[in-house]
Write a protein that binds this DNA or RNA. Structure first.
Length: 469
RNA sequence: GGUGCCGUGGCCGAGUGGCGAGGCGCAGGACUGCAAAUCCUGUCACACCGGUUCGAUUCCGGUCGGCACCUCCA
């Protein structure tokens, strides 16, 4: 398996630290405001990577942090007249609900910055002892960038090129403009924890160094995040961790591309965003997931409603194939098909290519069913691939339609059953009787009535089928 | 200014030194009471200019265009 490692900027053969096991850390969101389409992309990209690695037989430990203390959260809280804790809790809940809707698996560990202050303080003390950090008179602690010779290796920068952009903000007390905060002294009214340098809060970068090590140890396998985090966030993580404990901090750095809007990056700071929860409300969640997966995770992708509708139509093609076969297939997928799928995935998780295999499976499966042949093997392949891509959904429940279904049944003099699906069956049987009698007006009337409450009826060669939506 | 990525058919989007990935859309056909779903066929693309090569969309150089990072950001 080859993965594109940002460290080195090339495709490299993936060899985990320990055979058969993969340790993975992904930078999750700073919970300052509601999730947008870009957050979903990152989460889906690494969710699929995790799922694929497990499907390939690896034992995966997957860690995603939640940054719940940070300047932006404090600012948002002040603006809304809430406590930072409240803002963080509310926003975390929004992220969780969006991620659940997108069928993103819960990480094995989801550490919060505020619950790991002790680890961060320990790491900062170690950096100070080693001469890599210093406490300033104002109560801040800074990392001494020039003390770490490898600084810039991950992001491909030279220290001298960075100088023009670096600056010292008012109130900071750095030796060098390149230095960055490990610990920030608390101002009145700000969240604070006791520390050897006085009350304060951690800088942004230190949490990932501390938590990744705590849960995955030194030299873990995969560190992920958006390309916008490469510099300075990930560069600083490397500096902190390797200055304290020696290299390597992480072995493979994977970065997903950005979601653009009208050709430019979607970002909170510019207001160019499309709200994720809103989109999930308006489109089938799996259409959004498919939209992400159609493009290789490293490339930028432009968000448009047309693209989402396109993905929705593709999703419908997938689902309508699966509806032709109920239950679980009892035989395995053809190995050659899974091999083709695997070949794409092993090439730096090329989900766009992998989807081409899925659609070929659907076409072949449909053709076989049309020809009256057995397609179980193709259904099995479909289920495997859909599962790895996280596109498979649980059977639609009809519970929310029960009232409408029962009411329709009542108006037709059909007895409602305990299971709403059984009630639908009875109505469909009624229509089939009308069709047998060639009473097309009655038949169409019943079909329209079902369509009206969200049940689609299709007359296939093998009999009448129906499904929701 | 520095660093890096990218320009593929109506739209989206993989990939390859020589054989039309795939999806959406559109057109025609088959099936069908109608509709839907499905199948078949068509829609033969690789920004531009040079170079290497028997042959380049694919490699090299240049031009033009787009984007990202260099500040918080998935």
């Amino acid at each position: 398996m080859r993965v594109f490692n940002s460290l080195g900027r090339e495709l490299q053969e993936f060899v985990p630290r320990q055979a058969g096991q993969v340790s993975m850390y992904v930078c999750g969101p700073t919970v300052q405001s509601s999730p947008h389409i870009g957050h979903g992309r990152s989460a889906v990209a690494f969710d699929v990577i995790g799922r694929y690695l497990e499907w390939s037989g690896y034992d995966v430990t997957y860690v995603v942090n939640i940054t719940d203390v940070e300047d932006k959260i404090i600012a948002a809280a002040a603006e809304r007249g809430l406590t930072p804790e409240r803002v963080a809790a509310e926003t975390s809940a929004q992220f969780r609900s969006a991620y659940d809707a997108l069928n993103i698996r819960r990480p094995d560990i989801e550490p919060r910055a505020t619950e790991h202050i002790a680890e961060m303080i320990g790491l900062i003390e170690k950096l100070i002892a080693g001469g890599h950090a210093y406490a300033a008179d104002n109560g801040d602690v800074y990392f001494r960038v020039r003390s770490f010779a490898d600084y810039g290796r991950l992001s491909g920068r030279k220290i001298d090129d960075l100088i023009s952009g670096a600056r010292i903000e008012p109130g900071e007390d750095k030796e060098d403009p390149l230095d960055f905060a490990l610990w920030k002294a608390a101002k009145p009214g700000e969240p604070r924890w006791e520390s050897p340098w006085g009350p304060g809060r951690p800088g942004w970068h230190i949490e990932c160094s501390a938590m990744a090590r705590r849960y995955l140890g030194d030299g873990f396998d995969i560190h992920g995040g958006g390309t916008d985090l490469v510099f300075p966030h990930h560069e600083n993580e490397v500096a902190q961790s390797e200055a304290a404990h020696g290299p390597p901090f992480a072995r493979y750095w994977l970065h997903n591309g950005m979601v653009n809007l009208g050709g430019q990056k979607m970002a909170k700071s510019t207001g160019r965003i499309v709200d994720l929860l809103g989109a999930l409300d308006e489109y089938p969640p799996m259409a959004i997931r498919l939209f992400y997966l159609r493009t290789h995770y490293r490339r930028p992708v432009d968000f448009t409603t047309e693209a989402l509708e396109d993905a929705g139509a593709s999703l419908e093609r997938l689902r309508s194939f699966r509806r032709r076969f109920s239950g679980e297939p009892e035989i395995d997928a053809a190995p050659e098909v899974l091999d083709r799928f695997r070949a794409f995935m092993e090439d730096d998780f090329d989900t766009a290519g992998a989807l081409s295999v899925l659609f070929e499976v659907v076409r072949e499966g449909n053709a076989r069913l049309d020809a009256g042949q057995d397609a179980e093997e193709w259904v099995a392949a479909y289920d495997d691939i859909m599962g790895v891509l996280g596109l498979a959904e649980p059977e639609d429940s009809l519970d929310d339609l029960r009232a409408a279904i029962d009411s329709l049944a009542g108006s037709l003099d059909v007895a409602a059953a305990e299971d709403p699906a059984a009630t639908v069956e009875r109505i469909v049987e009624l229509r089939d009787r009308a069709r047998t009698e060639e009473d097309w007006a009655r038949s169409d009337e019943l079909r329209d009535a079902l369509t009206h409450i969200g049940i689609i009826v299709e007359d296939a060669a093998g009999g009448t089928r129906w499904h929701r939506q």
